[in-house]
């Protein structure tokens, strides 16, 4: 198991100096390793998880189930590529079970998302059907709980 990747997955803001000390390695080696992973795509990128509900930003998130007719030889890849290139699409997964593609979309309003589905996704040749589910509340994402800030509960138990 790659400890460096696991640590970075949990917290990408750990500096190479911190990582080197924690893993008993040289700072230079850590930097090289990270660079290698960035180049070969093992590290895809770095994000910040934001609870937008704590801001005045208006937004909605929707999960859309798509049923697809796969194309000969290329299966789902071509239609997936056409979908993930839309900047509105946050995540896209190929699924087993009752539907084929799971699309996570962010938009300003319900209407905007609905229109995106109606105008961009539904008309695609290989899309057989869509089902849109709106997210009402995020409880947990990427292993992090959307609740409170960085609070040390040990102090609050005193």
């Amino acid at each position: 198991m790659n400890e460096l990747l696991k640590l970075l997955e949990k917290d990408s803001r750990l500096t190479p100096e911190m990582l080197a000390a924690m893993l008993s390695k040289e700072v230079g080696d850590i930097k090289k390793e990270i660079e290698k992973y960035e180049k070969d795509g093992t590290i895809v990128g770095y994000n910040t998880l934001i609870d937008w509900d704590k801001t005045d930003r208006e937004y909605v998130t929707a999960l859309i189930e798509l049923k697809i007719t796969p194309q000969r030889d290329i299966g789902f890849d071509r239609v997936a590529e056409r979908i993930y290139n839309y900047p509105e699409v946050q995540s896209l997964y190929l699924m087993s079970g009752g539907f084929d593609l799971c699309v996570l979309i962010e938009g300003k309003t319900l209407k905007e998302v609905a229109l995106f589905v109606a105008e961009k996704l539904a008309p695609m040749d290989s899309v057989v059907s869509t089902a849109t589910h709106f997210v009402l509340r995020k409880y947990k994402d990427k292993g992090l709980i959307y609740k409170r800030g960085d609070v040390d509960l040990r102090g609050e138990c005193l």
Binding site: M18, A21, M22, L23, S24
Partner: peptide, 9 residues
């Protein structure tokens, strides 16, 4: 990991 970090620091 924290132990190694703080000892070094």
């Amino acid at each position: 990991r924290r132990r190694k970090f703080i000892v070094e620091e």
